[in-house]
Amino acid sequence: MYKMAEGVKDAAKKRKRSYTLKLMKRNWLLYLFLLPSVLYVLVFNYLPMYGIQIAFKNFTFVKGYAGSEWVGFKWFIKFFESIQFKKLMVNTLRISIYSLVVGFPIPIIFALVMNNIRNLKWKKVVQTITYMPHFISTVVLVGMMSIFLSPTGGLINRLLELVGGPGNIHFLGKASYFPHVYVWSGIWQGIGWGSIIYVAALAGVDQELHEAAMIDGANKLQRVYHIDIPSILPTIIIMLILRCGSIMSVGYEKAYLLQNNLNLETSEVINTYVYKMGLLNKKYSYSAAIGQFNNIINFVLLMTVNKISRKVSETSLW
């Protein structure tokens, strides 16, 4: 009995293998397509990966990558035991989840809305304007924010004053405001750029579907809901999966530049901490360990969300 079952299994395996081989043979060209990218990644990403080990070593240049002594998880533990660890985690997650929840849907909504603008010229103007902020460097952006958000005569305060607000709010000088300032400035800068991919996806929506729905008497909102959104859903899901895989990475530059002693309580995130450690204290191994910790969480999150998505929506990275 047992043997027979095995035999069947073997045969199935064999059949599968021969089918796979056939497929591989037939699609040899596709492997060739992949070759340049694979080579690139091998050389420029995998070859230098011996550098990862310094997170588990006490790295010094004299002893080099291979020669520095192993210290196991010393640096990881040091980080977990740091008094700031909890604060850093909370701050990082607060900002990234906030910007995921608010910042992720907004470009999608914007793309859908823009898709319904009929005047082509106006549409082009809108697109061109909204993608401009992407080109403003962080340093200048922060400088502009400091001007607009100034408690003494900044534009935002002037506007607030017009509608009866206090008019002297120190937006950058209060810890509780920081996540809002950080996230919304990010949305301002990224809304147009972030929507480009959805605009492109919407261009691929089958117009016949729309025409058919119109004949059925569906109004625009209904069509957006039943045609546009389902059509670009795979793109949305992939973007969401990728986004979830970067939850621990709150960019250090903007946070660092917006940081001051009054908002330190909420503005110190893992990456600004790493930056300060690496730059000011040259703790190569320690910063590498924190970096790895970040990456592992990100990667695990990506795998998890990807798995869930495959089950639920049949869209996944692999």
Binding site: V142, G143, S150, P151, T152, H170, L172, G173, N263
Partner: peptide, 12 residues
């Protein structure tokens, strides 16, 4: 005291 001193840029 100008409390904006905590956050203002050098240019401001």
């Amino acid at each position: 005291l100008d409390l904006e001193g905590f956050s203002q840029t050098v240019e401001q």
